[in-house]
Amino acid sequence: MTYSTRKERKKKRNKKRSIWKVFLWLFILIILALAGIGFYGYTQYESKLEPVDPQSEESIEVEIPFNSSMQEISQILEDNQLIQDARIFNIYTRVNGEDNFQAGFYELSPSDSVQEIADQLQEGGSDVSQEAINQITVPEGYNIVQIVDVIDQSTDFSRDEALLLLESSDFIQSLYDKYPELLSGALEAREETIYTLEGYLYPATYEINVNMSLEELLTAMVDKANTEYTPYFTEIEQSEYDLHDVLTIASFVEAEANNDEDRRLIAGVFLNRLAIDMPLQTDVSVGYANGEHLEYTTLEDANIDSPYNLYRNIGLGPGPNNNPSVNSVDAVLHPAESDYLYFLADINTQETYFSETFEEHLEKQAIYVDRTAEPPSTSENQAEDADEAVSVQQ
């Protein structure tokens, strides 16, 4: 009995040792497998950091747009065959803290390593494409008709081509698909506006590159508007106006103001008038309704039957009357607080004068606009009659 019991205990111990040996070998095999996988992964990672073509002498221009994410930059580089793997480039730059990349145009080569490319992107690129052959400048406050005239004069594209494209439903829809937050208000007002994209072609200087299409040029203007206005989207959502409204008011401010201080004061005047359902009576709207720039607004001009005519209509009208700068948008969102309801400019100095009452406005008009006239009577009836003939700014 004793011998049998000892034998059984010995068999059990041997069995346990065998099981542990199996576990030990499995553990070793797992470690070796993980090490092999890790080594393979590391070698693959290292290989992906090598130049795409070490012998290449080719130079490829790429543009890194403003506010591009790391994923977008990595994809741009991979799409242009400048790196082997966008994911590996993204991991490498983040691990090494090299992600402070600058917007601009870069001349890069497939023979550059990932580190060399990262270094160049951190140093900053050129603001101008090396392929640029021409420039076009859209001044602040130009409307679409004026912009297409600039295109006609400064490029090989004609005025009629530009207008036709700007009125194309397919082109407008393609822009909306790309910039829905920017253009939603424009599309909602499309049936009422003369030009759907009025107010959405940002005033700036644009490079005309080799083989650049008219569609690409106009898209660049909308893209620039999106870039400039995006920082204000949240603030606009929290206001009582939508983006289309803000751009409409900004277009009036752009045409009326001579400096940033005046922008804020004039924006305040328009907002004060809107708050009490008072006609804006801005000459800008009359000129736009008449389809021309008016040096002086007459009663005949102001009587035109158009929803854009804000002498005859209360509110903002269908939409922007020109393409304003971001400074005018900022002024609308951060107007100067005042009780002013009127303003006019000195015809000689262009200095702007503001008034709280119509009587005060008429007195300043006599001094700064019609210097030969006596200050008008301020009787209530005369003030009401004159209000029909005098613009907010002469």
Rank of each mutant, 00 (worst) to 15 (best):
N327S: 15
D277C: 05
S306I: 13
T297V: 06
V286I: 05
I276C: 06
I276K: 09
D277S: 14
V286N: 00
A275F: 02
A289F: 13
N322R: 12
G315A: 06
D277Y: 03
N321V: 14
L294K: 03
M278S: 14
N327Q: 11
N327I: 03
D305C: 07
N290V: 01
S285W: 00
A289W: 08
N313T: 05
D283N: 03
G291E: 04
N309S: 07
L316P: 01
T298E: 00
L280I: 10
S306G: 12
N309T: 01
T297S: 00
N323A: 14
N321H: 13
L280N: 12
G287S: 03
N323L: 07
Y288D: 03
L274A: 06
M278Q: 09
S285D: 05
T298M: 01
Y288G: 02
A275S: 09
P279M: 05
N303P: 07
E300T: 13
L274R: 10
L294F: 06
Y311A: 08
A275H: 10
D301F: 01
N327D: 13
N313G: 10
E300Y: 01
E300Q: 15
L310F: 07
L316W: 05
I314Y: 09
P324R: 15
N323D: 12
D277R: 11
N303V: 07
S328Q: 03
P324I: 07
S328L: 03
S306T: 04
P320R: 13
N327H: 15
L299R: 07
I314V: 14
N290P: 04
T298Y: 00
S306E: 09
N322F: 09
P320N: 07
D283R: 01
P279A: 04
D305M: 13
T297N: 02
N303I: 13
M278K: 14
L299A: 08
L316D: 01
G319E: 07
P307W: 06
V326F: 11
N290M: 08
D305A: 09
Y288P: 02
H293Y: 11
R312L: 14
P324M: 12
D305P: 10
E292L: 04
I304Y: 08
V326M: 03
Y288H: 13
S328W: 00
E295W: 07
Y311W: 12
D283G: 02
L310H: 11
T298W: 01
G315K: 08
S306H: 10
N322Q: 14
V326H: 03
L299P: 07
N309G: 01
I276Y: 06
I276A: 12
D277F: 09
V286S: 00
G319M: 03
M278F: 11
A289C: 15
D283S: 05
G291M: 05
R312S: 11
N303C: 12
V284E: 02
P307H: 11
L310E: 06
D283W: 00
G319K: 09
N321C: 10
E300N: 09
G315W: 03
A302T: 08
L316V: 14
Y311H: 15
S328F: 01
S328M: 11
E292M: 11
P307C: 07
D305N: 10
P279I: 02
Y288L: 05
A275K: 10
L310A: 03
Y288N: 02
N290Y: 02
Q281W: 04
R312N: 15
Y296K: 13
T298P: 00
P320I: 04
S325R: 14
T297P: 00
P318S: 05
Y296G: 01
E295L: 05
Y308S: 06
P279Q: 11
S325E: 14
S285I: 04
S325Q: 14
L310G: 09
